[in-house]
Amino acid sequence: MTSSSFSAPLLEARSLTRHFSVRQGSWPASHKALLRAVDGVSLSVGKGRTLGLVGESGCGKSTTGRLLLGLLDPTAGEVLFEGQPLAKAGSADWRRQRQLMQMVYQDPLGALDRRLKVAEQIGEALDIHHPEFSRGIHRDRVAAAIESVGLQAHHADRYPHELSGGQRQRVVLARALILQPRLLVCDEPISALDVSIQAQVVNLLLDLQHSLGLTYVFISHDLKVVRQISHEVAVMYLGRIVEYGEAESLFHAPQHPYTQALLAAIPSVQQRGIARPAPLQGDPPDPVAPPSGCAFRTRCPRAAQICAEAMPALRETAGGRKVACHFVEPDAVAGLAAA
C-alpha cells in the first residue's frame, strides 16, 4: 500500500516535471534539445515513514530529490510539505520550510568544507537560522547533534580529512539534524562507504527514525538496502515512475519487467537454481530522444506493437500497487501474492 494509507502525507509531489534545455551536435550545426529529466512524477511519504526511490543511474532520482526540497524549480507540477505548497526558493517562507527539510549527500568529503572543524560545520546552520541563540545554547545543540549520530565529543575539534568515511557521513547527518528537521532526503548516502560501514549507517538511520519520528526519501541503487529501510518503493525509469507500492509486496512479486530485471540482478545464494528473469541488457535510451510509447520497450522482453504506440499509464492494481505496463492486469498483484 502507499504511504498515504498509513498516515497523512508529510510530503507529496503532484505531476512533478523538470525539463532541461541542452545543446546537441557540434558547432556550428549544434541545436537545442529538451531533456526530460523528471516527467510527471507523483508520490507521497507518510510521517515517520521511508520511501525508497530506485533505478539505474541517469533515471532522474537525484533530480527528483532536489525538486522535493525546492533546490530546483519544477517545469510543471508542485510539491506539498505538510499540506502546503513549497514557497518560492530564496524567500523567507522557503527558508523556514527548509529548516524542516534537509539533504544527506552521497559524498561526505565533498559535502564538507575541509578548512573547517567538525563543530563549526555542524553549527553553521544555527548561525544562519538562529542567530539569537546564546553561545551556550549553540554549543549544547552542536554537542547533542554529535552525540546523536554516535560520534564522540573529541570529534568536534577534528577536520574532515582526519576522520574515516563513516565518521564523515555521521558528521553530514549531524549537520542535517541540527535544525531538528522532519524530512531527510538521503541521496545515495552509503554508496561511498565500505560494506561494513554501510550497515552501521543504515542502522543509525533506522534508530534515528524510531527515536525522532523522521521521514525519509531514500535514493539508492542498492536494492537490498532499500528493502531493509523502506516502507514504500518507487521505481524510476527515464524520468518516470514505472512501479510504486509497499516495499515487501513489491520485492515479493514485482510486476513491471524493469523492476523484475533489477531484482534479478541482485546476487542471492538462497535462490540458486530457481528460474529468474534475465538481467537487463544494454543501456537506457537517450533521454533527449526517448523511444515512442513506453520508454522501456527497447529493452523489454514483453514488448509488442502497442508499446511503441502508446505510453502506459501508471495504473493502480490490487493491494494498492501502481504499475505502468500494458500487460499488467488490475488483479495481477493479488494473484501472484496468493500463489
Rank of each mutant, 00 (worst) to 15 (best):
P291L: 07
R170T: 08
P291V: 11
A295W: 10
L69E: 09
G40K: 02
H19P: 04
D140E: 15
A144C: 11
S268L: 08
D187R: 11
T75G: 07
P181K: 10
P160S: 13
L100R: 09
R96Q: 12
P160E: 09
L112G: 01
I137H: 10
V225P: 08
V288N: 03
V45I: 13
L205G: 01
V185T: 03
L204G: 05
R158Y: 03
R95H: 14
V118P: 10
L126H: 08
I274S: 14
G46N: 03
P267E: 08
D39W: 02
Q200C: 03
Q255C: 14
K322N: 08
I128V: 15
R18P: 02
S196D: 03
T64V: 00
F81H: 00
R272H: 14
V118H: 01
V235M: 13
S148K: 14
F251M: 06
G90P: 11
F6N: 00
V201F: 01
L35M: 07
Q270A: 14
E132F: 10
L151W: 09
S230G: 11
G52Y: 01
A261F: 08
R272G: 05
A338K: 15
V328K: 00
P285E: 01
P160H: 13
L214H: 01
L72I: 15
K224V: 15
L43S: 02
R98H: 05
H326T: 03
G48M: 05
F327V: 02
T317L: 04
L238G: 06
L69G: 01
G213F: 09
A125I: 14
Y237T: 02
A76M: 11
P254G: 13
T75E: 00
H19A: 04
H129T: 15
R170S: 05
L238R: 00
A111I: 10
D140C: 08
V226C: 11
A308E: 12
K117F: 09
G110Y: 08
R170L: 05
Q167D: 05
D93L: 15
